[in-house]
Amino acid sequence: MTPTLRQDTAVTTDDGVRLWAARSGRGTPGTPPVLLCHGGPGLWDMSEDVAAMLDSLTAVVRWDQRGCGRSEPCAGPWTIGRFVADLDTVRRHFALERPILLGHSWGASLALRYALAHPDRVAALIYVSGTGIGPDADWHGAFEANLLARLGEDPERLARWRELPGDSRERAVLQWSAEFEDRERALAHAERMADPWFPINSPCNKALNVEAGRTVGTPALYAACQALDLPVLIVDGERDIRPRSAVDSLEHALPQALRVTLPGAGHLPWVEEPRGFCDAFMTVMRR
């Protein structure tokens, strides 16, 4: 198979902020492209493996969100509406009429908000490892307990994690190692996530989490999801340390939801269950 080339570019938003983006894959007539939304908030795109899986099937666009990773440093604004607008700018830059949106973790929430705002600009939504639309209190306490339990399997690693500053690469790698079910390879997987390494955008993370916390669990969000006339695929890793019951709120609200739970996988299911992840993606392509 001939390898596909990645084309990096800068996308300029309507307020003049430059976003890093890259296109790869083989676009073919009649096959919708895929537009990826990375997790965080405040992190950067780490989905090279996802793009590599899909490149032979369709065109794939990745991007770093505002003020994050390879995108231009800026002072915000850090709002969900601004990030939805940035996502639409990326879509228009690459002339993606109706892409499949694939969002992971926080990016799943961003992709959902975009689909709710612009359902006519989306072919389908793939919601990976998100936390649903219910209140954060439904899952966040259990997540923190599960995180400490995973790190606590190695007391020295837990102690080191606790003493490191919150924005350090070493602390992030230790924390991300808890995201994988395969404990023997967890640290190696986490190291790959941190290569390349960029500063974590903490103001972005805080502001977006606060705003999201005000809107989840509201009747307006439930009603909007109930009215969403799009095919949605929800993909979970069964061993994600975020309780997967949190996503029930979204699954039950959506009129066209298919849910696939991959056993033996954590928060990044394509890493530990690549075949199952690709098979789940193909269910959307066949619709």
Rank of each mutant, 00 (worst) to 15 (best):
R171W: 03
E191Q: 08
A224E: 13
L148N: 15
T89Y: 12
H118A: 15
D14Q: 12
L174D: 06
A194M: 10
R150P: 11
S249Y: 15
A190H: 11
E181S: 15
R185D: 02
T283H: 01
A52F: 09
A21P: 04
G237D: 05
S109P: 00
K206A: 13
P3S: 14
V210T: 15
R91Y: 12
D279A: 15
A59Q: 13
R98A: 13
R160V: 04
C68A: 02
E48P: 00
F83G: 09
V210G: 10
T58S: 13
T12F: 03
S24N: 01
A108M: 07
E170F: 12
P196E: 14
M193Y: 14
L116V: 08
H104K: 14
R150D: 05
V122T: 15
A207H: 02
E238K: 15
D182S: 06
R98E: 07
F94Y: 14
C225K: 01
S109H: 09
P219V: 11
L254D: 14
I80T: 14
A253W: 02
R242K: 03
G217F: 01
P99W: 11
H93M: 00
G217K: 01
V271A: 02
I80C: 11
V122Y: 09
S47N: 15
I200D: 04
A178G: 02
T28V: 10
M285I: 08
E251V: 12
V90Q: 03
E163C: 06
L35K: 10
R6S: 09
V173G: 11
D136Y: 05
R185T: 03
G217Y: 01
L174Q: 11
V284M: 10
R160M: 05
R62P: 00
I80V: 14
H252Q: 15
L148K: 12
A178Q: 01
R160K: 14
S56M: 03
P165D: 11
V61H: 02
V260E: 06
G42Y: 12
L96P: 00
A253L: 07
L147I: 09
A220L: 09
V60E: 00
E48N: 09
C68Q: 01
D15W: 07
E156S: 12
V173E: 15
G152T: 05
Q7M: 05
